[in-house]
């Protein structure tokens, strides 16, 4: 269901229970701090006094934020902010201004990586990069912001490897030279790709050959190349699967296509899904310094 849970930052109504109002106040406090600030929340007694609420209400509010992943409590040392989740929430807030709704999830940004205003300007930049031009096989994440690049790749006759949403049905391999011009637009969508591509599970993923470049959207990306996804860590899982099957090597370039508001200048102690080599936005291109080394920088996902 969409609606009240689609935006964790929605202001609770006046008739909402007190703990929801307190949850909102604490969230605002946390999101208002610099993204690099890792100091714990003030002690419980101090919050009780400053917010003017009971211990029970405060605990209920904090428990909710812990369950949502924004906070974590460490026995004996206090309540801390989860830096990845804080980045996500700050960026989702900004993205609401420029994002395009999803065909199913509307503006529930926890569920998908949205397309955004002026994205075509970023696409043009990606298409001018050697890493893109020289690639025969491209991995393109199933993000709405990368749909048009899937179309361009197919038009260029490239092979495109796309995971299904949530990896529920493995990967789909689309071969640009086998898809008719009239079908390309359809084949580039999540709705249409399975009509044209071959579905590949872990057993036959090697059929994709060797991926020359990874193109992905992101919830956020830091200037030094940390890819922060939606929280389910699908990209990390996909890259690990491909690496285990030798579909990608450790030096494959990763290009992240994002809106300028998704680029984080601060140093964040995040748990990135992978390292990004080049960030492309509608207005600029950021080379993140070090060469991608997936082995070093990809955090192994659980399970």
């Amino acid at each position: 269901m969409t609606g009240r849970f689609s935006n964790p930052q929605a202001v609770p109504s006046d008739s909402a229970p007190l703990y929801e109002q307190v949850r909102h106040q604490i969230q605002m406090l946390v999101l208002g701090r610099p993204l690099s600030d890792m100091t714990p929340l003030p002690p419980e007694s101090q919050l009780i006094e400053s917010l003017g609420v009971s211990r029970g209400t405060l605990r209920r509010a904090i428990e909710d934020l812990v369950r949502e992943g924004l906070l974590r409590t460490v026995q004996g040392s206090g309540t801390f902010v989860n830096p990845d989740e804080r980045v996500r929430r700050v960026v989702w807030n900004r993205l609401r201004e420029v994002a395009r709704p999803d065909s199913r999830f509307d503006m529930n940004l926890q569920k998908f990586v949205p397309d955004f205003a002026d994205r075509h300007l970023a696409d043009a930049t990606v298409q001018s990069l050697d890493a893109w031009i020289n690639a025969d096989v491209v991995f393109i994440a199933p993000d709405n912001s990368t749909e048009a690049l899937r179309l361009h790749a197919l038009a260029d006759g490239k092979a495109v490897l796309v995971p299904t949403y949530g990896l529920t049905r493995g990967f789909v391999l689309l071969k640009g030279n086998l898809i008719k011009a009239v079908d390309r637009g359809l084949a580039a969508t999540l709705d249409g790709m399975e009509r044209f591509g071959k579905r590949l599970g872990p057993a036959d993923l090697a059929e994709a050959g060797h991926v020359d470049v990874i193109v992905t959207g992101a919830t956020a990306v830091t200037m030094n190349g940390q890819h922060i996804g939606g929280g389910q860590r699908y990209l990390a899982l996909e890259i690990n699967l491909m690496r285990d099957l030798d579909v990608v090597n450790d030096l494959v370039p990763v290009i992240a296509v994002v809106h300028d508001c998704q680029v984080i200048a601060e140093t964040v102690q995040a748990k990135p899904e992978c390292a990004v080599e080049i960030i492309v936005t509608p207005t600029r291109i950021i080379r993140c310094g070090t060469k991608t080394n997936i082995r070093k920088l990809t955090v192994k996902s659980n399970g």
Binding site: S103, V182, G185, L186, A188, L190
Partner: peptide
């Protein structure tokens, strides 16, 4: 455009 009619028939392409 003629090339996008099937695309526009999906939920992803319609709007």
């Amino acid at each position: 455009p003629a090339s996008d009619r099937r695309f526009a028939a999906t939920l992803d392409g319609f709007d």
